[in-house]
Simulated scan of single mutants.
Amino acid sequence: MQTKKIINDGNRAVDEMLEGILAAHPRHLRSADGSPRSIIARDGPRPGKVGLVIGGGSGHEPTFLGFVGKGLADAAAIGNVFASPPPDPILECAKAVSCGAGVLFMYGNYAGDVMNFDMAAEMAAMDDIEVRTVLTTDDVASAPRDQRQKRRGVAGNFFIFKAAGAACDRMLSLDAVERIARKANDHTFTMGVALSPCSLPQTRRPNFEIGADEMEIGMGIHGEPGIARGKLGTADAITDEMLDKIFAEMAPKRGDKVAVLVNSLGSTPLMELYIMNRRVKQRLDEIGVFIHASWVGNYCTSLEMAGASVTLFHLDEELQTMLDHPCDCAMFRAG
């Protein structure tokens, strides 16, 4: 049985979405000339500033498009649903934001993205554009602690991109921007839970099967297997299970400071997210960890998947400064 979607043609869904986004946010966004999958910030690139290029597959909105703007990413390369952008639109992004100080590529650690962004970096080098790369690896469930470099990048991109974008906007050097981006990644921890599948526009069929009374802890944002499947628990029990795994990695101490993201994977409503956020605060209060800022809502989705993720961004003074730095993007503003 096919799912219901408000689309025209599944094969045109991404391009029609981009047309709609550009129509809705002309003050923030434009596409590169001749490259409609290269989305550029109207108020971002400027002489002497490190350019920040993010990107990946569609279907995770507002990631990546929503984080393009002044004080955050300068450009995003957009792929098909759950698929990496090819090298050409990535290269066009790099060219559009190269202002003499180098370019940083940032994206989730997925094989297709690594291959295509690396190819684009090699092509950019032929145009004398220096490119550095920082992969995001915040998904605690996707690999053991001693293999963190193999982990996926998920909703924690929100904090990692924010820190790197602030460093760029403050006109720091490419070395400093790269250092802060890596530090932000190392301080970001995410766990998710999936309750039901999503369906791609081209197929309109569920991308995995799960029982009506089941949940899967640690499932990836493309439906990658998680670490445990079991009976659906209460909101507090689910949140506790995710936080226990995050705390084991983050090792918070009394007096520490964090930023919190409670993120919907697509169809989970705000009511349920705020119930989870309530439990996150209770648990952090119990161990004496202060919440500097919280975000609750759709920030890194998986089409219409039901489920949620919790991300903690373990702050120090430098990372807090980057988090608090103003930004003005199509779908996100701060400061």
Rank of each mutant, 00 (worst) to 15 (best):
Ile6Leu: 14
Ile7Gly: 00
Asn8Tyr: 14
Asp9Pro: 06
Arg12Gly: 04
Arg12Cys: 06
Val14Arg: 02
Asp15Trp: 00
Asp15Ser: 10
Glu16Arg: 11
Leu22Ala: 03
Leu22Gly: 02
Ala23Leu: 12
Pro26Cys: 05
Pro26Ser: 05
Pro26His: 06
Arg27Gln: 13
Leu29Trp: 12
Arg30Ser: 14
Arg30Thr: 15
Ser31Gly: 03
Ser31Cys: 05
Ala32Lys: 09
Asp33Arg: 01
Gly34Thr: 01
Arg37Trp: 00
Ile39Phe: 15
Ile39His: 15
Arg42Gly: 05
Arg42Ile: 06
Arg42Ala: 01
Asp43Gln: 10
Asp43Phe: 02
Gly44Gln: 02
Arg46Glu: 14
Gly48Arg: 11
Lys49Ile: 01
Val50Thr: 09
Leu52Gly: 04
Ile54Cys: 15
Ile54Gln: 14
Gly55Leu: 13
Gly56Cys: 03
Gly56His: 03
Gly57Asp: 13
Ser58Glu: 11
Gly59Tyr: 01
Gly59Thr: 03
Gly59Ala: 06
Glu61Val: 07
Glu61Leu: 11
Pro62Arg: 06
Pro62Phe: 10
Phe64Thr: 10
Leu65Cys: 07
Leu65Ala: 01
Gly66Met: 07
Gly66Asp: 06
Val68Asp: 11
Val68Met: 13
Val68Ala: 10
Val68Pro: 12
Gly69Trp: 09
Gly69Phe: 09
Gly69Glu: 07
Lys70Val: 01
Gly71Val: 07
Gly71Leu: 09
Leu72Ile: 10
Ala73Phe: 02
Ala73Asp: 01
Asp74His: 15
Ala76His: 04
Ala76Trp: 04
Ala77Phe: 03
Ala77Pro: 14
Gly79His: 04
Gly79Pro: 08
Val81Asn: 01
Val81Trp: 01
Ala83Leu: 05
Pro85Arg: 04
Pro86Cys: 10
Asp88His: 08
Asp88Ala: 12
Pro89Asn: 02
Pro89Lys: 01
Pro89Trp: 00
Ile90Arg: 06
Leu91Cys: 13
Ala94Thr: 05
Ala96Gln: 08
Val97Gly: 03
Val97Tyr: 05
Ser98Val: 04
Gly102Phe: 02
Gly102Cys: 00
Phe105Cys: 02
Met106Thr: 15
Gly108Phe: 06
Gly108Cys: 07
Gly108Leu: 09
Asn109Ser: 07
Ala111Ser: 15
Gly112Ala: 04
Asp113Tyr: 12
Asp113Ala: 09
Asp113Arg: 08
Val114Trp: 03
Met115His: 05
Asn116Phe: 14
Asp118Ala: 13
Ala121Cys: 11
Ala121Lys: 13
Ala121Thr: 13
Glu122Val: 05
Glu122Tyr: 02
Ala125Lys: 15
Ala125Asp: 09
Met126Ile: 08
Asp127Gln: 14
Asp127Val: 04
